[in-house]
């Protein structure tokens, strides 16, 4: 029983971080119908930036999120302006290929700057845990999970309580009408792309404390993130949060009760199953261009 509760707690802590990163990916898709394959690469970039603050200035990587996030936001804004905007009317597959290229370039750039060795961030509390009953709660995971929730809430407030948020939701629902009421959809999209990547960057700073990383780690992340947003329903942030929790649980339970070797298969199996049974995901709406009646 303790083992089961332990498993449950660990998976929820991981799930919170997945939720943060995946919500960025699904937000981008919701507004601009772009599947950002480079999302995982920007997560790793966030981790490397956090590492640099920690290593050079002794800044706590989790506190460093305050600096990391705006940097990645700016980068995202710039990337949208330079690369994504010119092809916003192209077929979706073009943007998939573009962002795939972006992922490779980002991986290469990180390799040149930080090297291709495995890197870890080790603040003082990294090997400590809170112990509740027989269950251990690793401090890094608890702080990281809490921070992820805070960032998620901030994101949610931006989307629901601000003018910007209303503009974003209008642009997502109906770009043409949004233009009519004076919303510059491309400007909104640039902000959204920045926000989405910033979520990945913040998530990267957190996961960098939890697990070692190297530039090539992004494949693993993008596979997971895609599985999460597909399960949650492309474009649905609530769906992404719920499915991130489910996903964290499925992964951990598979690792503990079946075999860690098969845990890596979980994302791919989920993608297959979801697209086969319910292509619109848990909370997504069916996109005209997304699913075909057969």
């Amino acid at each position: 029983m303790t083992e089961f509760i332990q498993t449950l707690v660990l998976s929820l802590l991981v799930g919170g971080i997945y939720a943060l990163v995946a919500s960025g990916l699904t937000l981008i898709f919701g507004v601009m119908r772009v599947i950002n394959i480079a999302h995982g690469a920007f997560l790793i970039l966030g981790a490397f930036i956090a590492y640099t603050w920690w290593n050079q200035l002794g800044l706590d990587p989790l506190v460093g999120v305050v600096i990391t996030t705006p940097i990645v936001f700016g980068l995202g804004w710039l990337i949208y302006r330079l690369l994504v905007r010119p092809i916003r009317h192209a077929p979706m597959s073009s943007t998939v290929l573009l962002t795939f290229g972006l992922a490779l370039v980002t991986e290469g750039v990180m390799g040149v700057i930080w090297g291709n060795d495995s890197t870890s961030i080790n603040p003082s509390y990294v090997d400590q845990s809170f112990h509740v009953g027989g269950v251990f709660l690793p401090k890094a995971q608890v702080y990281g999970g809490a921070l992820a929730v805070v960032v998620l809430v901030v994101l949610w407030l931006i989307l629901t309580k601000t003018w910007l948020g209303r503009a974003i939701r209008a642009a997502a629902a109906n770009p043409a009408s949004a233009e009519l009421v004076g919303i510059k959809v491309t400007s909104v999209a640039a902000v959204v792309f920045g926000l989405g990547l910033a979520a990945a960057g913040a998530g990267g700073a957190i996961t960098g404390v939890l697990y070692p990383f190297l530039p090539g780690s992004h494949y693993l992340w993008i596979a997971r993130l895609l599985a999460i947003v597909v399960l949650g329903g492309l474009g649905s942030i609530e769906g992404a949060v719920i499915s991130a929790m489910i996903f964290g649980l499925a992964e951990t339970v598979t690792a503990v009760y079946i075999s860690p070797a098969w845990a890596t298969a979980v994302p791919y199996a989920i993608v297959f199953a979801v697209l086969l049974i319910r292509p619109q995901g848990l909370l997504g709406t069916r996109l005209r261009d997304d699913a075909v009646a057969t």
């Binding site: 303790t2 083992e3 332990q6 498993t7 660990l10 991981v14 690793p138 995971q141 939890l210 697990y211 070692p212 990383f213 780690s217 494949y219 693993l220 992964e251 951990t252 690792a255 503990v256 075999s259 860690p260 070797a261 845990a263 890596t264």
Partner: peptide, 20 residues
Amino acid sequence: KTTYAIDTKNFDSIVAAMKS
């Protein structure tokens, strides 16, 4: 006894199982 894949990053679940 377990075998894990090369891209495994999260060892908490393995350790939780070993702990018990």
